[in-house]
Write a protein that binds this DNA or RNA. Structure first.
Length: 616
RNA sequence: GCGCCCGUAGCUCAGUUGGAUAGAGCACCUGCCUUCUAAGCAGGUGGUCGCGCGUUCGAAUCGCGCCGGGCGCGCCA
């Protein structure tokens, strides 16, 4: 057991012995904000004293009298208004590092209560290019899944792609206009661009653009029920609607076009996910739930949860919540008015709310998760509140935590939503290309001695890592400003700096000429002397706190900060404590410290989905 | 109008159940490479935590009211 866990357990026991009825779940230790206070502190006794109107320092003294942590810590101190400060004996630090060096742990503990957690993230749309709007969800979701898995939870990742909906009417229409059966766009180098081009064309024709309409007329020669010269905006729109209806009613040709659209898109998704190193256990898109929707609408009607309204079907407030917390009410002109959630449109089609309800039910029934996290844009907060509330009414027996893990927008340097210079949305593929290209310039500048293929590989890892890190570093709920210069900077809190820290440690081991036997046969012995060694060791021991917090609040940015601090501690150690030139005993100890730091850096970056390099 | 989120150093942002003297990077200034990768380190300048009132041993954090900004609010997802 790690020292802080052991201290915490004994502290809780001591509190129970003083206050038998106290709930000790919140009696926790955590790292001290300032090393002068010690290694760990608890402030929980002040809270306990407050709710019981006890003197906090007296309570601290009473608890301390029942607390025995003597073999782990120096004398425990009562400080301030009633803190308990713990300072680890240096032998405790040293033994913990040694057990890590033996591979018994890496400064964190796997959970004793594994949960099954579904993470819903990325969710791009079929037949459209993946763009910057998908990057935060993809990177955040992947990182959270990695963190949960590392801590021993059962994680199911599910990519809920947008493979059904009204846009397919226009897509199929466009497909037929361009006679793609004869000119398979899947064979083009960039089929998605081609699909996007014709989609825009049809869309513009529907809006009445003269050039687009003229183009349609010139191309139109198939299966003509409408006369060519009657293709006007209304005509084009009607035609697209007709194709949609045919698709929905199972028309063979349209289904085949739809399937080919999905196949082309999935290929694009795979290319991007491969570059990002992101994988999914399932890709169950919206279409998968299609067959279930009618029955769900009917069931919600039967149960009185939903009702007809203006031709549509909607869920209204049932009055079970205070109005302020009720997602189905809103205040207008001082009155509470209905704010319903539509589950069926007046044309009889279901919408995304229905699909999300079906998805939720399916996941629960199939995987029995204790938790489902939806990693989406913050603008969907109301939607998810309504979905969750509807689901609770529909399945009151369900025992599952539903979390909307929302995030803010990516902004350009001008503070407005991130776009290209010409005002287009930025494609993910282009973004990754540019990251690698810019990283290549930097690598070439710094290391002209390396052969080009190696520089390319470094640029790939650094470029992708920089984008991911820039995305994970800010608190997920804040908007952040996208800046190439900042994310690729070689100093400061950036991916390249962390990767460099790792590479620099690796370099020590490459130059370590001690023979292999001395590395393996002698029991590893750590002895800490220099202040830089001690603060580095202390920081390594805090890895567990950070991982717990990341998973608890769905916040990888805490890990970013931790890793940056770790790299800073190591840099100070590196400046002040020679490793290879030290005396044998000290050298062995410092090699262990270095190798454990490297391992935590590597593991931490891996949770962020960022690769490390031995050389850069 | 109502709801959600935000307002912290010149700029970009952290700030862990309320906790000890509010932190970092960039920028600016000063040092440090014959010594394990200087893609580095050390030091300095810089704050009425939007404003006010309140809650308490203690508030950037919680409550109320203002000011300023972003987003959302019935058939798109």
């Amino acid at each position: 057991m790690l020292p802080h866990k052991s201290i915490e357990a004994r502290l809780q026991a001591a509190v129970s012995s003083v206050l038998p009825d106290a709930n000790t779940a919140n009696v926790l230790v955590r790292p001290c904000p300032d090393p002068k206070f010690g290694d760990y502190q608890t402030n929980a006794l002040m809270a306990l004293a407050k709710e019981r109107k006890l003197n906090p320092r007296q309570l601290a003294a009473d608890v301390l009298a029942r607390l025995d942590v003597g073999e782990l810590c120096e004398k425990v101190e009562i400080a301030g208004a009633g803190f308990l400060n713990f300072r680890l004996k240096s032998s405790t630090l040293e033994r913990t590092l040694e057990s890590a060096a033996r591979g018994e742990h890496l400064f964190f503990e796997r959970t004793t209560q594994p949960r099954t957690v579904v993470i819903d993230f990325s969710s791009p749309n079929v037949a459209k290019p993946m763009h910057v709007g998908h990057i935060r969800s993809t990177i955040l979701g992947d990182s959270l899944a990695r963190a949960l898995r590392l801590l021993g939870h059962r994680v199911i990742t599910d990519n809920h792609i947008g493979d059904w909906g009204t846009q397919f009417g226009m897509m199929i229409f466009a497909w037929k206009v361009e006679k793609f059966f004869e000119n398979d766009p899947g064979l083009l180098p960039d089929p998605i661009s081609e699909l996007e081009r014709v989609y825009k064309l049809v869309n513009e024709a529907c809006k009445g653009d003269a050039k687009a309409l003229a183009y349609l007329r010139s191309r139109f020669s198939y299966d003509v029920e409408l006369e060519l010269d009657k293709i006007e905006p209304e005509g084009a729109l009607n035609w697209a609607r007709m194709e949609l209806v045919k698709l929905q009613s199972g028309d063979k040709e349209n289904l085949e076009i739809w399937e080919r659209l999905i196949a082309i898109s999935k290929k694009q998704f795979e290319t991007i996910y491969n570059r990002l190193g992101v994988t999914f256990d399932h890709t169950l898109g919206e279409s998968f739930y299609n067959p279930m929707l009618k029955a769900i609408v009917q069931e919600l009607l039967d149960k009185g949860i939903a009702k007809e309204s203006e031709g549509a079907i909607a869920v209204f407030s049932d009055g079970s919540l205070p109005p302020k917390q009720d997602p189905f009410l809103k205040q207008e002109d001082g009155e509470w008015k209905p704010n319903p959630s539509l589950i069926q449109k007046s044309d009889g089609a279901a919408n995304y709310a229905t699909t999300d309800l079906a998805t939720l039910a399916y996941r629960l029934q199939t995987w029995h998760p204790s938790e489902i996290g939806y990693v989406t844009d913050g603008r969907q907060q109301l939607h998810f509140q309504q979905i969750f509330a509807t689901f609770r009414r529909w399945h009151p027996e369900a025992n599952v935590k539903l979390a909307h893990v929302w995030f803010g927008s990516i902004l350009g340097e001008d503070g407005k939503p991130f776009k290209t210079r010409s005002g287009e949305t930025v494609r993910l593929a282009d973004l990754l290309d540019e990251a690698e290209e810019r990283a290549f310039q930097v690598v070439t500048d710094k290391r002209p001695d390396l052969p080009e293929p190696q520089r390319r590989e470094i640029a790939r890892v650094v470029g992708i890592g920089a984008i991911k890190y820039a995305d994970l570093l800010p608190n997920r709920q804040s908007d952040y400003v996208f800046s190439w210069d900042k994310m690729l900077a070689l100093h400061g809190n950036t991916a390249p700096y962390l990767q460099y820290s790792y590479a620099r440690i690796s370099s020590i081991f490459r130059k370590d000429d001690s023979d292999a036997t001395s590395k393996t046969s002698e029991p590893a012995s750590v002895s800490l002397g220099a202040p830089e060694e001690i603060s580095l060791a202390r920081h390594l021991l805090n890895f567990d706190f950070v991982l717990g917090a990341v998973v608890e609040d769905y916040r990888p940015n805490l890990l970013c900060n931790y890793l940056y601090e770790l790299a800073s501690h190591y840099a100070r150690f590196y400046e002040n404590c020679p490793v290879l030139k030290a005396e044998p005993k000290e050298r062995a100890s410092r090699l262990i410290l270095s190798s454990l730091t490297a391992e935590v850096l590597r593991q931490g970056l891996e949770i962020l989905g960022i690769q490390t390099l031995e050389q850069m």
